[in-house]
């Protein structure tokens, strides 16, 4: 039987500001919602060219600390 129970965690600070989602997947992974880092940003910020990088907001880091 295939079981695929997925949980989306959303952390909300006082007020209405929400952090981006954290996904807990049934295969044990934690997937974060962010955006890819462009080649231009990598050049500008001296980031690795080949690594898979995502940019996340600081609220998401607080969410990880608080929720996981």
């Amino acid at each position: 039987m295939a079981v695929n129970f997925r949980v989306e965690l959303i952390w909300k600070e006082s007020g209405d500001k929400e952090a981006a989602s954290i996904f807990l997947t049934s295969d044990g992974r934690v997937i974060l919602q962010g955006r890819g880092v462009s080649a231009e940003e990598r050049d500008k910020l001296a980031l690795p060219r080949d690594a898979e990088l995502i940019s996340v907001d600081r609220n998401l880091i607080r969410a990880i600390k608080d929720m996981l």
Binding site: M1, A2, V3, N4, F5, R6, V7, E8, L9, I10, W11, K12, E13, S14, E18, D66, M67
Partner: peptide, 16 residues
């Protein structure tokens, strides 16, 4: 029933 855990997507929103 088992449909409640198979292919389920649950959202947990945590406010203060």
């Amino acid at each position: 029933n088992m449909a409640l855990v198979e292919h389920a997507a649950v959202k947990v929103q945590r406010a203060p």
